[in-house]
């Protein structure tokens, strides 16, 4: 799936990954550690952006899992990659490129994807082409190595105050939009047929949700990058799905998990020589494993279920 991008990124990483810094030491004095964490403005920006992104990703991610549209989230991040690299080529803020490209793609995908079954094929076709575009834009831009690295794997420590402001506005808009359509969106996600019969505009909601997803993806790319988007946009929702909570509570837990991964990742990374994205994805993965473990242990006869979920959008 993403192996082409991965290989390219690995080559780039060898060539132009940011040099490791000598990391500060953590002490047992938590107050002093927090003071240390927030001493530099780049860390304050990182925490601010990370917090906004985690809240948005936690809320939107709940619906991503409920609607089985994780493949769409993945695809939108790749479309966003083309937008961001394109923006860099023409000298525009890559976040703006991300937002515009992925939102437009989301609108098109929402309009095309009325036939539920055909959606993953449609999305896959769009995805392949936009990754190609991204490669073209990268080759056009001369100083591409670090930029590409940041887009692919996230570089939250390099986030500017302006990026934080853009993230805050985009994030707030998404949350307001979700709050406005919360009930019918839930209805349409759980039971499309009955929702349509009750007068819920399921197609318009589907397209609208794709745009919300595009914005969530765009802001999340800054934190974990295009390739690691799942850890913030899908993993919290997937963990919550195993807990069988009422929807409002489930969403709150999903947000709490995304916040925990982000904050823990930022904090641990600060005191270590390794990248933030690694820690965020690792904490997310560990939480997912521990959420699955009890069920896996109790299921004495794990019937052959085959690979389910994840990449394949049921629609």
């Amino acid at each position: 799936m993403a192996t082409d991008g991965l290989r390219a990124a690995l080559l780039l990483a060898q060539a132009g990954a940011p040099a490791r810094r000598t990391s500060p030491r953590a002490s047992w004095d938590v107050v002093a550690d927090v003071r240390q964490l927030l001493h530099y403005s780049f860390m304050r920006h990182a925490f601010a952006a990370g917090t906004i992104v985690a809240v948005v990703a936690g809320v939107v991610g709940y619906f991503v899992v409920l609607r089985r549209s994780s493949f769409a989230a993945h695809a939108l991040s790749h479309v966003g990659f083309a937008g961001a690299t394109g923006a860099v080529v023409v000298g525009v803020n890559p976040v703006a490129g991300l937002l515009v490209f992925s939102s437009v793609a989301a609108g098109i995908m929402g309009a095309l994807g009325q036939r539920v079954k055909g959606r993953d094929v449609t999305i896959g076709i769009v995805l392949a082409w936009t990754l190609g575009l991204g490669v073209l834009f990268l080759s056009l831009y001369t100083g591409y190595a670090t930029e590409a690295y940041a887009l692919l794997f996230g570089e939250i420590l390099g986030i500017s105050q302006r990026d934080v402001a853009v993230t805050a506005i985009a994030g707030a808009a998404t949350l307001v939009a979700v709050a406005a359509v919360y009930r019918p969106l839930l209805f349409a996600s759980v039971d499309e047929d009955v929702a349509a019969a009750r007068g819920v505009p399921v197609r318009a909601l589907s397209a609208g949700f794709m745009v919300m997803l595009a914005v969530a993806v765009s802001v999340a790319v800054q934190v974990v990058g295009v390739l690691l988007i799942f850890s913030l946009l899908v993993t919290p929702g997937a963990i919550v799905e195993r807990l069988a909570l009422r929807p409002g509570r489930a969403m709150a837990v999903s947000v709490a998990l995304a916040l925990a991964f982000t904050w823990a990742g930022l904090s641990v990374a600060y005191f270590s020589p390794y990248p933030v994205s690694f820690f965020i994805t690792t904490f997310a993965f560990a939480a997912y494993l521990s959420a699955r473990l009890p069920a896996a242990v109790t299921a004495v006869a794990p019937a052959v279920r085959g690979p389910r979920r994840g990449w394949r959008a049921r629609g």
Binding site: A179, A180, V181
Partner: peptide, 12 residues
């Protein structure tokens, strides 16, 4: 519950 007010806009 969705059968009761799932078609209404907003968040309860």
């Amino acid at each position: 519950r969705l059968g009761l007010d799932g078609h209404r806009w907003g968040t309860p």
